[in-house]
Every structure is written in structure tokens, then in C-alpha cells.
């Protein structure tokens, strides 16, 4: 169980993980503008390290990455913190990957290009859940 009591949005930390550094930066800027704390990783290994040491509450995870792929990162994230909220992102919708992601505990699955409005609404829902607990 997470010890930290979440009381404010500002304490919600989101990890953005995509092998495209540009999009990571843009999305980080977007979340920061919405009052969240945001951090980035551009590959799976980096993401796992940040999950361990920065303990984000939410992760935006690209499925297809060199090295450790998104699904593997999701698995590790859930192992480290079963309460962590994970949204998977992929360029091409793939039924099998979608199913696998949900089974591994992702709470949503988005396709590129990202719609920031929709992304924020999905994140808000998860944040509400986290705040209620």
C-alpha cells in the first residue's frame, strides 16, 4: 500500500514513456500545464528505473519501443506498485496487444495521434480514483 497520502493534484506524478523524445517533451509540458508533476523516459529501461526511484502514480506507456517494450514495462510497473495507473499508447491498433495490456492491468489503451483533451479526461478519471482512496 502506498504510504503517501494524496491530497492535491500537484502531488500526482505522471511518467511519459515514448521513444520519440519530442512527443515526450510536448506531453510533459501539457501535463505540467494542467498542474501535474511530469517526468519522461525514452526507452523501457529508463522507464523501469524511474518507476523504481520516482514512484509515479500514472504512466503513459508507448507499446513499441526498442529494448524492453511497453508491455514488459507495464508488467514491471504493476509488480512494483499494483495501484499505479497505466495508459498504453500505440501507433497501430492491435487486438492482441490491446487484450494483453488490459490483462496486465492497463486501464486504457490509446492510439496515435494522441488527442490531448481525451488523454486529460482519462487521466482525470484515474486521478479521482486515486484521490478517493
Amino acid at each position: 500500500m502506498r504510504e503517501l497520502q494524496i491530497t492535491r493534484k500537484g502531488l500526482i506524478k505522471i511518467l511519459v514513456d515514448d521513444d520519440e523524445p519530442k512527443v515526450c517533451e510536448q506531453v510533459k509540458l501539457f501535463f505540467q500545464s494542467k498542474g501535474y508533476e511530469a517526468t519522461t523516459a525514452t526507452n523501457g529501461e529508463e522507464a523501469i528505473a524511474k518507476l523504481k526511484y520516482e514512484r509515479p502514480h500514472l504512466v503513459l506507456l508507448d507499446v513499441r519501443m526498442p529494448g524492453v517494450n511497453g508491455i514488459e514495462v507495464l508488467r514491471q510497473a504493476k509488480k512494483l506498485d499494483p495501484a499505479v495507473g497505466v495508459i498504453m499508447v500505440t501507433a497501430v491498433q492491435d487486438e492482441e496487444v490491446f487484450k494483453e495490456a488490459l490483462e496486465e492491468g492497463a486501464f486504457d489503451y490509446l492510439t496515435k495521434p494522441l488527442n490531448l483533451t481525451y488523454l486529460e479526461s482519462r487521466v482525470s478519471v484515474k486521478v479521482m480514483e486515486l484521490l478517493e482512496h
Partner: peptide, 23 residues
């Protein structure tokens, strides 16, 4: 398709960020 959608995603997110005046 993957590879096309990545730059498209970059473009799309960059445009949305600009539109929202985040930067």
C-alpha cells in the same frame, strides 16, 4: 504505418500544445 504515425503523432501533439497556448 507505425513509423508514419510517430511523426504524425509528434506533429499532432505539437499542434495541440501550440493551440492550447501551453507554450
Amino acid at each position: 504505418s507505425h513509423e508514419i504515425l510517430n511523426p504524425i503523432n509528434n506533429l499532432s501533439v505539437a499542434i495541440q500544445v501550440l493551440q492550447r497556448g501551453i507554450v
